[in-house]
Nucleic acid binder design. Structure first.
Length: 667
DNA sequence: GGACGTTATCTTTTT
DNA sequence: GATAACGTCC
């Protein structure tokens, strides 16, 4: 406890009334939370099982567990540390009966959910963007804990009524398939606690103390869930920073910081304002920038660290030039100061920006890691195999059934599926079991019937093996039985493409295996699949080599919560940061917070880069410097325009590069 | 039903 | 410039 400053220590010890900790960037928030966990157990004799800590990312949850473990040892594993969604999943697995669900249900990711909505609402021809807006609207209703009926009742116009109708159809289909989307993982527990006094009392008794991290990112349903868990005892601490709210576009409601004060009048507010991360000048620039935003709570970050060098701004001719210069800079700095690659991070607004930097890094043989999570799960081969997993776990998962019933080709066409679907609907059953019923025999012709039944029997056979025997073996044998590798080669334009796709499938299977046989935390097949769908495994394996010495490349969104000695924020241009869509929507404040998050990642040096021209959608466009650069104090920026370099400077740069290259060769 | 060519459309992405 | 959705042809 001696390692804490007065504000941190106050935040740790305060337990008698609800507490809001306003934790500025780099203010030792995780340190305070983990000390609080230890304090509750060691000094106040809470059992670890009765403490629930909730985060937003798997990564944050894992880090919290790890750091709590270092502080309090063995007992830390008994703490309930999880993401909101994992908490919800565990809750539903315990209370599935009250929710009228089967024990085995499946999770839909964003794409699955969209596909189900299109199917359920008969929206086949609807434009993708309109469908997206519709899905968003449904999400909003779910986040407000509204049923389709309630949504219909408050619908203001014809469009909303149509949306509510689609919501109703979507929910019916979900029920029929025992499929939950990400929203349901929050919505169902919240509604369950609201509607069942006995369950509410049971959980309020279980949850003796509640901690919530990144509270500014909570949405309406998450807030309701939190309130029901906290109950009247209201033993909780929430930690947040309104300046780092960058997920409003995704339903997060930073107003929850304000509402808290109204809902809990006894709320105590503690501010953590000392920054332990960044050199003074970097912090000053961050403060100057964010001062342009309105604030819910005033706070001012300060640092005892040295002031540091001016922040440099690399003004480049074009985007290729930008990548080359940034990579050269990194290379030279590494050699000159004998640093590690992993001390450098390149931050950008959009994933597409990574391309050129990747190219430049590969050219120079510099190791790097690109954090881009979801593209892996968007790949068709991964979605196919996941659909097989889902169907093995839950044979009522019609969405998964439809996706793979003819993949690889089994000559099961639309007509057959339609007949089967109509039959299943009449019988109020799902597709796979329906195809094995006697009644279906009169509906389908012999060939179609055989094809569908063979498929259904195949799934049942391997599902049984997965349940009773070795799940990993079952999965591998299933993939062999359906000839998936061969199918990939058949489908792909070149063997190379097929090879990489098959590699993706193998990665997926090995992640599944790692999880099932995890040394500390083994689980059954069903849970492994669910964790896979909650994206928990990719990160886990990525984290295993987090000690690898690689330059880090990530989006500004992904960078939140992380820190690096040397940060390069690239593409500091109007239309990119702030993004043109945000400019059009007048949503500059969130973009400014995004820039703020980027700046506050830097510990020692920070370099911005921008271009005069850039290729966008294949066309060369002129770029203006980001307004955020002009909002920073002029004296702290050092503009470094390539065109203004003297011959002497250019010679120096060439010499430096040569030296760096030589050093690299020696390495 | 599937392969292939043409044409609009472009964020960020914890789960 | 890449992709996905759409239309056309076999």
């Amino acid at each position: 406890m001696s390692s804490l400053n007065p504000a941190q220590s106050q935040a740790v010890k305060h337990v008698h009334t609800p507490l809001l900790v306003l934790a500025g960037a780099g203010s030792g928030k995780t340190l305070a939370i983990t000390h609080k966990l230890a304090h509750l157990v060691r000094s106040l004799y809470y059992t670890p099982e009765s403490i629930y800590a909730v985060t937003f990312t798997n990564k944050a949850a894992r880090e919290m567990k790890e750091r709590a473990g270092k502080l309090m040892g063995e007992e830390a594993v008994r703490l309930n540390v999880s993401t909101f969604h994992t908490f919800g999943l565990n809750f539903i697995r315990q209370e599935y009966k009250a929710l009228q669900l089967k024990r085995s249900f499946t999770l839909l990711d964003e794409d699955d959910s969209m596909a189900m909505l299109r199917e359920a609402g008969n929206l086949g021809q609807l434009d993708k963007q309109v469908l997206f807006a519709l899905r968003h609207e449904i999400s909003n209703w779910k986040n407000a804990l509204l049923t389709p009926e309630q949504a219909m009742a408050i619908a203001k116009d014809k469009d909303q009524q149509l949306a509510a109708t689609a919501y109703a159809a979507y929910e019916r289909t979900q029920r029929a398939c025992h499929a939950l989307d990400f929203d349901d993982l929050i919505l169902l527990p919240a509604a369950c606690l609201r509607d069942n006094l006995d369950i509410r009392e049971k959980w309020q008794d279980k949850v003796r103390y509640l901690l919530i991290d990144e509270y500014q990112d909570t949405n309406g349903a998450q807030y309701e869930l939190m309130k029901f868990l906290a109950g009247t005892r209201a033993a909780f601490t929430v930690v947040g920073d309104d300046d780092q709210s960058i997920y409003a576009w995704r339903g997060a409601n930073p107003e929850n910081l304000n509402i808290l004060q109204q809902d809990f009048p006894k709320l105590q507010v503690i501010k953590l304002e000392q920054n332990y991360r960044s050199f003074g000048r970097i912090l000053k620039c961050a403060n100057t920038l964010i001062a342009n935003n309105p604030h819910l709570f005033e706070k001012s970050l300060w640092s005892q660290k040295t002031y540091g060098e001016p922040l440099r701004v690399l003004s480049c001719k074009n985007d290729e030039d930008e990548a080359e210069r940034v990579v050269n800079e990194i290379m030279m700095r590494k050699m000159r100061f004998n640093l590690n690659w992993k001390q450098f991070a390149i931050l950008f607004r959009g994933n597409h920006q990574a391309r050129l930097f990747e190219k430049a890094l590969i050219e120079k043989r510099i190791p790097y890691k690109l954090s881009g999570g979801q593209s892996f799960f968007a790949k068709a081969e991964i979605k196919d195999v996941l659909a097989y997993f889902r169907l093995l776990v839950n044979e009522d998962d019609d969405a998964a059934f439809l996706r793979i019933v003819n993949v690889p080709r089994r000559d099961i066409g639309a007509v057959t599926i339609e007949k089967l679907g109509a039959y299943a609907q009449r019988r109020h059953g799902s597709l796979l079991p329906s195809s094995l019923e006697l009644g279906i025999e009169s509906e389908l012709n012999g060939r179609s019937l055989t094809a569908v039944r063979q498929f259904a029997e195949l799934i049942r056979r391997y599902a049984e093996q997965a349940r009773k025997g070795d799940a990993l073996e079952a999965v591998n044998e299933l993939l062999k039985a359906i000839g998936y590798e061969g199918w990939l080669y058949e489908q792909a334009s070149s063997p190379k493409v097929a090879q990489s796709r098959w590699q993706n499938v193998q990665d997926l299977v090995s992640w599944l295996g790692n999880h099932i046989n995890h040394p500390q935390d083994p689980c059954d097949f069903e849970e492994a699949v669910n964790r896979l769908l909650l994206r928990d495994m990719l990160e886990r394996s990525a984290e295993e080599d987090r000690n690898a010495d690689e330059v880090q490349m990530l989006t500004l969104h992904a960078a939140k919560g992380l820190e690096y000695p040397h940060v390069y924020m690239v593409g500091m241009e109007e239309e990119l940061l702030p993004h043109h869509v945000s400019i059009e929507e007048g949503n500059i404040e969130e973009e400014r917070r995004l820039a703020y998050v980027g700046i506050t990642r830097a510990q020692e040096t920070l370099v911005f880069s921008l271009c005069k021209t850039r290729k966008r959608y294949g066309e060369l466009v002129h770029c203006e410097p980001s307004r955020f650069l002009t909002e920073l104090p002029v004296d702290d920026l050092q503009w470094d325009d390539q065109r203004n370099q003297s011959e002497e400077q250019k010679a120096q740069v060439r010499e430096d590069r040569l030296a760096a290259l030589k050093a690299l060769l020696d390495d």
